[in-house]
Nucleic acid binder design. Structure first.
Lengths: 118, 118
DNA sequence: CATGGCGTGTAGTATATAGTACACAGTACA
DNA sequence: TGTACTGTGTACTATATACTACACGCCATG
């Protein structure tokens, strides 16, 4: 079974709540500026995941990687989308090529580029 | 000025129409299974670009790269999205790293991976 | 001169997205 | 024992998305 957005968020929040009462559903809702009932429905997967902006605020609040949270919501963060849209053919080829490459290989490339080997 | 989705499509269609009467707006609309008035509005950017599925049918009909057409519509094709969502942190890092790399460098890496150098 | 194909204008629709507002019942604790 | 906080149920809403349906006027041509 796949982890859903809601389950993941609930689990993460309850973990934080165990050692910090500031992570009640209502407190989190307050900080990320949505209604508590909405967070409740989100965590039980009763509604679709929220918007990108709300997911990013939530990720920050829960100290989670926003790319991971966005992925669980089936979304790609808009800065990545922006990069792809500027050079669609190039990135399409890159991603399709890397799709089946093992993590190690992809990481090696990232490192090579970061180290200026181009 | 940026080329819009509509302008691009209209220009492409009219180019094809010049040597083939099968590329009238109505004929294209018929083949891609939407109303002619809808295509008219799309080409004049009077409405937002159509759905991914419709864009792909349109790209095929106009013999255009669907990734390019999707990009003009501000969309990323769902197979690319799927690849990113499976390994969000990895691909986020990859794309952010490649974002500022010159085309040549990215292409070199793509070729290296394709040629099994990993 | 009417018939067929052309592009376009107006109006309307179904479904999805992204939430709000507020009442309610249970629990803790002072 | 009351009050403060917890999570949840119900109902509603505004905006966006992705189109359809159909009528209109223009032009070519047979």
């Amino acid at each position: 079974m796949k982890t859903t957005f809601g389950c993941f968020v609930r689990e993460r929040r309850e973990t934080l709540l165990r050692e910090n009462a500031d992570y009640s559903l209502r407190k989190v809702a307050g900080r990320i500026q949505v209604e508590p009932s909405y967070v409740s429905k989100i965590e039980r997967d009763q509604v679709a995941p929220p918007s990108e902006e709300t997911i990013i605020r939530l990720a920050k609040d829960l100290k989670e990687d926003s790319d991971v949270l966005l992925a669980l919501a089936g979304k790609v963060s808009s800065d990545l989308r922006g990069a792809i849209l500027k050079r669609p053919r190039l990135f399409a080829e890159l991603i399709r090529q890397m799709k089946n490459a093992p993590d190690r290989a992809v990481l090696r490339m990232v490192r090579e580029v970061r180290d200026g080997k181009w």
